[in-house]
C-alpha cells in the first residue's frame, strides 16, 4: 500500500495542493481524474520525489518510498527522453532492468528474454531493432509500458498512458494492467477519458487542486463530484443516462 500523508507541493510559492492525504491499495487499479492543471502529474511527481515537497511523507509497505524507488515503475506523461539517442527499441526496454541491477552488473540472458517478452506483450516485437526516434507516438508510448513491465515493480504509476494510442493497443495494455492487478500489484493510472472510468478502475481519485473525492469508483464517480471537479455541463452530458456505467 502506498500512503501519502499531508503532502504540499508549490511551484514558486504557489501551492498546487496543501496537506493532501491519500492511500493506494494493492491488488487494485486506481484511476486519477481531474481537469487539466488539476495537479495530477504534480501529485505523482511528489510521490516519487521528483519535485520538492513543502511538506508530507510517502510510504510504501510502511517504509519511506524514497528508499524503495526501484520498486516503483513510472511512465511519464510526456517522456522527456532524448529521441535522437543512439539506442534501439529493444535496448530501451532493457533499461527497465537497470533499477534492479547493481553496479558492475549488466543485463543477463534472463533480463533480455524478459525484454523480448515485454515487447511481444505490447505488440512491438517487429520493431525491436528500430531506432527509438523512428517510432510513432503511440508505438513509443507502448515502449515505455514495455519498460515498466520488465522493471517488475510492486507499484506501477502510469501518467496518461493511453494518449495517442489506438483502441486495440489500449485494450492490450489494459489487459496487462489486469494481470498485474491479479498479481497483487498497486496500479495507479492518470486518465482523461471519463467514459472509460467505470470500466477500467476499481478505485477512483478525483482531483482538482486537492482531493475532491476518493474511494470505490461506484461511490465516487457521481454527478456531484464531477460537477465539483469539472463542470456542471460535463456531468450533465456524462450522467444523462440513469446509469453512469452506460454513460
Amino acid at each position: 500500500m502506498i500512503k501519502v500523508r499531508n503532502m504540499t507541493v508549490a511551484y514558486s510559492g504557489q501551492p498546487i495542493f496543501t496537506n493532501l492525504s491519500i492511500a493506494f491499495e494493492p491488488g487494485k487499479i486506481t484511476g486519477i481524474i481531474g481537469p487539466n492543471g488539476a495537479g495530477k502529474s504534480t501529485m505523482i511527481k511528489g510521490i516519487l520525489g521528483l519535485i520538492h515537497k513543502q511538506s508530507g511523507d510517502v510510504t510504501l509497505h510502511s517504509k519511506p518510498v524514497a528508499k524503495q524507488l526501484k520498486n516503483v515503475a513510472y511512465v511519464e506523461q510526456r517522456a522527456a527522453l532524448d529521441l535522437t539517442f543512439p539506442i534501439n527499441v529493444f535496448d530501451t526496454v532493457l533499461t527497465g532492468t537497470y533499477p534492479n541491477l547493481g553496479l558492475f552488473k549488466i543485463p543477463s540472458e534472463k533480463d533480455k528474454s524478459a525484454a523480448r517478452q515485454a515487447l511481444a506483450d505490447v505488440n512491438l516485437s517487429e520493431f525491436s531493432q528500430r531506432q527509438i526516434g523512428e517510432l510513432s507516438g503511440g508505438q513509443l508510448q507502448r515502449v515505455f509500458v514495455a519498460r515498466a513491465i520488465v522493471q517488475e515493480a510492486d507499484v506501477i504509476i502510469l501518467d496518461e498512458p493511453f494518449v495517442g494510442i489506438d483502441m486495440k493497443s489500449e485494450a492490450e495494455i489494459m489487459s496487462i494492467l489486469k494481470r498485474w492487478q491479479m498479481a497483487g500489484k498497486t496500479i495507479i493510472v492518470v486518465h482523461h477519458d471519463l467514459n472509460k472510468v467505470t470500466k477500467y478502475f476499481d478505485d477512483l481519485v478525483i482531483i482538482n487542486r486537492g482531493i475532491v473525492a476518493a474511494g470505490k469508483t461506484a461511490d465516487v464517480f457521481t454527478k456531484e463530484n464531477i460537477t465539483t471537479a469539472f463542470s456542471g455541463d460535463l456531468s450533465t452530458i456524462l450522467f444523462s443516462d440513469k446509469e453512469p456505467e452506460h454513460a
Binding site: 524507488l69 511519464e76 522527456a80 527522453l81 532524448d82 539506442i87 537497470y98 541491477l101 553496479l103 549488466i106
Partner: peptide, 21 residues
C-alpha cells in the same frame, strides 16, 4: 566500464533514472 549503465540512462532518460532513485 563500471558506470556504463548509469552513464547511458542519465544521458538518455534522466527522469527515469531519477524516478528509480
Amino acid at each position: 566500464v563500471v558506470f556504463y549503465k548509469e552513464l547511458l540512462i542519465t544521458s538518455f532518460d534522466n527522469t527515469f533514472a531519477q524516478a528509480y532513485g
